[in-house]
């Protein structure tokens, strides 16, 4: 035996190789589908947040205010009456402010229906007083009614009750729809990943078989697929979140008429938006990893 044969051979340098072979070609369509789903999920999350914020604002506006409508009557100056009454109401306990609106303000509110060319001067247009409350639950309706009665003014007090119930129901429905949409998209993403993980296991049956034969546990084999799909989910999540942020920025920058765009996501650069977009890759990776693990473990249990 030569000296070279007596020498123990040196093991190769470097770390252990990946047990699952690279699968870039097969994974590409899944990456694209996952990125699109994450993109939609981010838009849905931003939309849900936007809907939530808008509905809270609408409810705050309705609950924290009253409106007094002064009907014009013969021989009285409605604009002046509004100013006088607003001053009295402003001094009432529980009222934070009382702003008298002019006939011109009322005409401006009616402009979407009657146009901006002005209404006939003899058309009786109610004049409004916008009242802010200290406590939405403690509106001093009786006191305001007394003031109006004492002044002999023909007016209605609108506590927005009939609107706020409808708005509350609409807001609740909008929130449910937004979060339902988000849940559906996440569920679809999980289902797609689970399907892909099963397909990947079938494609890599040789690897799974070889690992089982040498004593690998189901958990070990599932862990390999879990890590691969976590990585894929993270990358797809990052791509989807970046595109969603770009779209939201475009909407925020380009959509100056926010009222017309309240169903579109609105990027407010609030902590929620930043956290949601930053967390999207992690959540996508987590959903992908969990889906893949559960799918592979179930498949392995069926097989052996």
């Amino acid at each position: 035996m030569s000296d070279a044969e007596k020498m123990p051979p040196a093991p190769p340098s470097g770390g252990p190789a990946r047990l699952l072979p690279p699968d870039a070609g097969r994974d590409r369509p899944l990456f694209i589908v996952s990125a699109i789903l994450v993109f939609l999920a981010c838009l849905a999350a931003l939309g849900a947040r936007s809907t939530w914020t808008s509905s809270e604002r609408w409810m705050d506006d309705l609950d924290g205010s009253l409106t007094v409508q002064i009907r014009p009557s013969e021989g009285r100056d409605a604009d002046q009456d509004a100013i006088d009454i607003a001053r009295l109401i402003a001094e009432t306990p529980g009222v934070s402010r009382a702003d008298a609106r002019s006939r011109a303000d009322s005409e401006a509110l009616l402009a979407p229906w009657f146009g901006t060319s002005g209404l006939p001067a003899d058309l009786p247009v109610p004049v409004l007083i916008d009242i802010g409350l200290d406590n939405p639950d403690g509106a001093p309706l009786d006191e305001i009614a007394d003031i109006l009665e004492t002044a002999g003014i023909d007016a209605d007090i609108d506590d927005h009750g009939r609107w706020s119930d409808a708005v509350a129901r609409a807001s609740q429905l909008a929130r449910l729809l937004a979060f339902g949409l988000l849940a559906l998209i996440l569920g679809a993403a999980a289902a797609v990943i689970a399907f892909a993980a099963r397909a990947s296991l079938v494609a890599r049956r040789d690897v799974a078989d070889a690992l089982h034969i040498v004593g690998a546990t189901d958990s070990y084999v599932a862990g390999l697929f879990q890590r691969r799909f976590f990585s894929l989910g993270m990358k797809a999540g990052a791509a989807g979140a970046i595109f969603a942020a770009l779209i939201a920025i475009l909407v925020a920058v380009g959509g100056s008429n926010a009222d017309a765009l309240y169903f579109l996501p609105e990027l407010l650069f609030s902590p929620f938006e930043i956290i949601a977009l930053a967390a999207a890759p992690l959540i996508a990776g987590g959903v992908a990893a969990l889906s893949a693990r559960l799918a592979v473990e179930e498949e392995l249990r069926k097989r052996w």
Binding site: P8, P9, A10, P11, P12, G15, P16, A17, R18, L19, P21, P22, D206, V207, A210, L211, V214, G215, A216, Y220
Partner: peptide, 30 residues
């Protein structure tokens, strides 16, 4: 496993058993 080297294939049972490469590398090479 076609994507692994001869060394990595031989070491597979030790690897899945949780052994560290440093602990088995010389034995596998031998």
């Amino acid at each position: 496993l076609e994507h692994l080297s001869v060394f990595e294939n031989v070491a597979l049972p030790l690897r899945v058993a949780g052994q560290k490469r440093a602990n088995y590398a010389e034995d596998v090479a031998e």
